[in-house]
Amino acid sequence: MRESRDFDTMFKEWYRPFFYFAYRYVKNEEVCRDIVSETFEVLWQNYDRITPSTAKSYLLSVLRARCVDYLRRQHVHDHYIQYIAELNDTFFEEGGMEEADRRVVMVRNGMEKLTPYNRHILEECYIHRKKYKEVAEDLGVSVAAVHKNIVKALRILRKELRQG
């Protein structure tokens, strides 16, 4: 495709049918407008490599893929929202706050029973989100030693939580 007039013609001719095609999947006008515009942007970016005879089928495949991608992301988003809602419902049920407070106290009691070295390793890995390798380098020990201390600390915490 050489002429920008060709692009303009395609845009004017295909925008509406592409919009309705996307709407069959997505069912949201604003999102459909964005997806169709992004699809034409792909055409513009690849303008010199696409022939007019293959442009429509190429754009329809791009459009379909973008609709499916949007639906996948929306599906994940919806599941996350549902999970958070269920989590909040469970947490705020009668006694939920008290149960959470009780568990926090039990974990703190368990942490107090750890040696300072075990507690430090556990905090670095679980609170500060460091990898075993990072903690091992910081302490000058092997990754296996960090792993061994984590296992030991978690065993003590599990025991404390079962007793509580």
Rank of each mutant, 00 (worst) to 15 (best):
P17I: 04
R16S: 14
R2N: 02
R155F: 08
L59F: 02
E160V: 10
A55I: 14
I127G: 05
T54E: 12
I35K: 10
H120G: 13
K131P: 07
Y15K: 10
V36K: 00
T90I: 11
S37V: 11
E134S: 09
F91Q: 03
S4A: 05
Q163E: 15
V104D: 14
E38F: 01
V31S: 10
E86D: 09
G96T: 02
L122I: 01
D78E: 13
E137H: 01
K113N: 00
V68G: 14
T9F: 06
E13I: 00
G96I: 04
D48F: 10
A100S: 01
G95V: 10
Q74N: 08
S142V: 03
R108A: 12
K159S: 07
E13K: 06
V141K: 03
V135K: 06
F21P: 00
F11N: 15
D8I: 05
N28L: 09
E13A: 02
Y126S: 06
A65C: 01
G96D: 01
L139V: 04
L59I: 06
F21R: 05
Y126W: 03
Y25V: 11
R158Y: 09
M10N: 13
Y58N: 03
P116M: 08
T90H: 04
E98S: 15
I81G: 05
T115F: 02
A55S: 10
I127Y: 12
S61L: 15
M106H: 14
A65W: 00
R119V: 03
R5H: 11
A144T: 07
K159G: 05
H77F: 09
F91P: 05
N149Y: 14
F91I: 01
S57E: 02
F21H: 04
Y25N: 06
K133T: 15
G140H: 01
I35P: 10
E86N: 02
Y70W: 12
